[in-house]
Amino acid sequence: MNTRTFRSCAALTVTALAAVTAGLTAQTATAASPASSASRGAAQVVEGAGELFPELNGMRIQAAGSVDVYLVLDGKRHLIPSPVTYDALFRGTEGIRRVLTVDNIADGGPLTAYAYLARTADDPTVYLVSNGLKREITPAAMDTFGFDPRKVRTTYDWVLAALPSAALPTGRTT
C-alpha cells in the first residue's frame, strides 16, 4: 500500500469513528466513565436530567472539547459561569478533571455570577454564597473542593444571617 492510499484509508477510518462516536457519546461516556455503575453502586436517576453522583462532590469537571467548568455539589453539576467567578473561589486550575461528557450528571443549575466565599469577623465558619443561599464549607471540604482560603471575604454577621442555608457539602470520602 502506498502512502497516498494509506492516508486516504486513515482519513476514512477517522471520519467513520467520529460519526460513530458522536452518535454514541452519552452511552459510551456512561460505560467508560470512572463513575460507571460497576464502580459506584446505585446512582439516583433524576427524571430527564441525568443521575446524581454524590461521590463526585467537590470535583471540578470539564467535558472534552468544552471550555465550561462545573463544580459538583449534592451530586449535581453546577456551571461555574465565568473565569472571574472561578478565580474568586478556587486555588487554580490543576484540580479540574477532564471527562468525556457531563451530560450523565444531573444539572443543578449554574452558580451565581460572582459567587464568593465569606465569613464573619467573629466566626471562622466559611460559607459558599451563591444563588441567594449560604452553604457551610467545612475545613475538610475547603481542601477537597480546592477552594482558596486566601479568597474568603470577611463580611458583616447580619449579611450571612439574612441568607438561608443550603445543604452542607461533606466532600468526597475517598
Rank of each mutant, 00 (worst) to 15 (best):
T173W: 07
D123Q: 04
T154P: 05
A162I: 01
G50R: 00
D123S: 10
P34Y: 11
T170Q: 14
A26M: 07
F145N: 00
A167R: 10
D68Q: 12
D87F: 08
P164C: 09
Q62S: 12
T25Q: 02
Y86R: 10
A42N: 15
D74M: 11
A43Y: 02
A32N: 05
G109P: 05
V129C: 06
V152Y: 10
D122R: 00
G48W: 08
A31K: 13
E55P: 04
Q44A: 13
A121G: 13
T120C: 06
S82P: 00
R77E: 03
L12H: 15
R150E: 15
P149N: 05
L117S: 03
S66H: 13
Q44F: 12
G92F: 03
T30A: 10
P83T: 15
Y70M: 01
E94G: 13
T21G: 12
G48I: 06
V67L: 11
G108P: 09
M1I: 03
L117M: 12
R172S: 14
V72R: 03
R91K: 08
T120M: 11
G23Y: 10
G95D: 08
A64G: 00
A29F: 06
A141R: 01
V46P: 02
V45W: 01
V69F: 09
D107A: 07
Y156V: 07
E55S: 15
I96E: 00
T25I: 12
A141G: 12
G132F: 10
T120P: 04
T154I: 15
R60N: 09
A118Y: 09
M1D: 05
V72E: 00
G146H: 06
S37V: 08
N104I: 03
G95R: 07
Y114Q: 13
D107V: 07
P83Y: 14
V159N: 06
F145Y: 13
A29W: 05
T3K: 04
V159I: 14
A167M: 11
S37F: 01
D68H: 12
G65W: 04
T125H: 01
E55D: 14
T144L: 11
V46H: 00
T138G: 09
F145R: 00
A22W: 15
H78Q: 09
A26F: 10
L17K: 03
A22I: 10
A38V: 08
S39L: 13
G109A: 01
V45H: 04
R7M: 14
A18F: 15
V129L: 03
A19P: 03
A118S: 04
K134H: 02
M59Q: 09
L52V: 01
R98M: 15
L12E: 13
